[in-house]
Write a protein that binds this DNA or RNA. Structure first.
Length: 469
RNA sequence: GGCGCUGUACCCAAGUGGCUUAAGGGGAAGCUCUGCAAAAGCUUUAUUCGUCGGUUCGAAUCCGACCGGCGCCUCCA
């Protein structure tokens, strides 16, 4: 199995430190606002990576941090005149709501920055002891010149970065690239006691401290968006490897941006839709298939039209699943067992997913399977139950449990009986009688009236099928 | 200025030296089914991969030049 490692810029054979265990850390949200649909791409793609590792038999421990103390949270708390904890708690709740709707599986642990202040302080002390951190009147900085391999992840060289730096140079720093480990408290800001006085942690230190605490000094996979490569992940390496003198991460994975009209979707540009907005217009399945149909590392343009197109693809898979459910109920136990190349479809799926999670190809395998399955059902109307169950099992294992582009359990929920469905069936049965009497005028009128009520009636060989608009 | 990504059919998009004279989805067209309509299924749909040169028995895939799009270097998934 190959994974593209940002560190080496190569696809590398995946060899976790202690197989079958895999440790995976994903940079989570700063809880200062609802996350946008671009952020969802990273959450969903990391979910798929994790699901596939589980499919392959790995025991994955997945950690996602919650940054609950940070400039933007403080800014919002001042604007709204409410405590910072209230801001972060509100958006943490919203985060979990949205992530559930996106069918992203829960992480094993969601460590919060504010619950790990002590660990961060200890890490900074260690860096200070090693001479790669320095204190300037209560502000503690990381000294990049004292970490030899600074820049190895982003491919940057310290000298070049300095000359191209766009930010105003902070006179107190030794080097303009030095970054905050500990920020001295300003008035009315949340703060914690520390050996350097009251203050709060810098942004990067939390990931180093929390990934070490929950996953160990060296972790297998660390993932996040492309924009985190520099400076965030570069700084994490500097902190963790500077302190522990051990390799921090074996495989760095980065996800491409979601663009709008070829521009990166971002809060600062204002060209974004929140995940909850998009979920109000499109299904999770359409969103997930849309993301799957392009490789995780490249850019992807967002538009409602593309999501609508993805929905059609989802429907195609769901139609087969529903057809199978229907046939499984009717099928004979001792029917025929057609010859079908299950192994080929499973091995094709694995081959492409093994190649750096090629989800577009994986989706292609699923669509090929859908076509082949429809064909074989057409050609073998008397297939046995087991055969049909095996067909459904393929969809469950791949499209549902790994990619999450369909959710079979939700389909089952849809057919629960109620008075409403009983009444609809009654009307449809009466309409069948009208059709038998060739009273098409009245039959069509019934169909039109139902349509006005939001129910679409499709006649088929086995009787009318009704769908909600 | 530095580093990196990218340009494949009407749209989205995979493929990075021969298995591909290029997957898959959407769209379009045809067929099957059918009282009609719709739905669904099946079939078809790029001799061609930004442009121009080069390497090679062989290139969308490697090299060079050029044209276009984007990202990071400041908070950002």
């Amino acid at each position: 199995m190959l994974i593209y490692n940002t560190l080496s810029r190569l696809k590398e054979e995946f060899r976790p430190l202690n197989p079958p265990f895999v440790t995976m850390y994903m940079c989570g949200p700063t809880v200062y606002d609802y996350f946008h649909i671009g952020n969802s791409r990273s959450f969903i793609m990391s979910d798929i990576v994790r699901n596939y590792l589980v499919y392959k038999g790995f025991k994955v421990k997945f950690v996602m941090n919650l940054t609950d103390i940070e400039d933007k949270i403080i800014k919002k708390s001042i604007e709204k005149n409410i405590p910072a904890e209230e801001v972060s708690q509100f958006y943490t709740d919203a985060f979990f709501e949205d992530i559930n709707k996106l069918k992203v599986k829960k992480a094993d642990i969601y460590p919060k920055a504010t619950a790990h202040i002590q660990e961060m302080i200890e890490l900074i002390l260690l860096l200070e002891k090693k001479g790669i951190a320095y204190n300037v009147n209560g502000d503690v900085y990381y000294d990049v010149k004292n970490f030899d391999s600074y820049g190895k992840l982003s491919g940057k060289k310290i000298d070049e970065l300095e000359s191209g730096a766009r930010v105003d140079v902070d006179e107190r720093k030794n080097n303009s690239l030095d970054f905050s480990l500990w920020k001295k408290a300003k008035q009315s800001e949340p703060s914690w006691d520390s050996p350097w006085g009251k203050g709060r942690p810098g942004w990067h230190i939390e990931c180093s401290a929390m990934s070490t605490k929950h996953l160990g000094e060296t972790i297998d996979i660390h993932a996040g968006g492309n924009d985190l490569i520099f400076p965030h992940h570069e700084n994490e390496i500097a902190q963790s490897e500077g302190a522990n003198e051990k390799e921090f991460v074996k495989y760095w994975m980065h996800f491409g941006f979601l663009n709008i009209q070829n521009e990166k979707m971002s809060k600062s540009l204002g060209n974004f839709f929140t995940a909850r907005d998009v979920l109000a217009r499109h299904s999770v399945e359409a969103i997930r298939l849309f993301f799957c149909q392009t490789h995780y590392g490249g850019p992807l343009n967002f538009s409602d039209e593309l999501l609508t197109a993805a929905q059609k693809g989802v429907d195609k898979i769901i139609n087969l699943a529903e057809r199978l459910d229907n046939d499984i109920n009717k099928a004979e136990v001792n029917g025929s067992t057609p010859i079908f190349v299950f192994n080929k479809f499973y091995s094709d799926f694995e081959t492409v997913m093994d190649d750096d999670f090629n989800t577009p190809q994986a989706a292609a395998v699923i669509f090929d399977f859908v076509r082949a399955a429809n064909k074989i059902i057409d050609e073998n109307p008397n297939s046995c139950k087991t055969f049909l169950i095996n067909l459904k099992e393929f969809l469950k294992k791949t499209a549902d449990e790994v990619l999450g582009v369909i959710h079979l359990e939700d389909l089952n929920k849809r057919v629960s009986p109620s008075l409403e469905t009983e009444l609809i069936n009654l009307i449809l049965n009466l309409r069948e009688d009208l059709k038998k009497e060739k009273n098409y005028k009245l039959a069509d009128e019934v169909r039109n009236k139902l349509n006005e009520l939001g129910l679409i009636v499709h006649d088929s060989k086995t009787g009318a099928v009704v769908k909600r608009k």
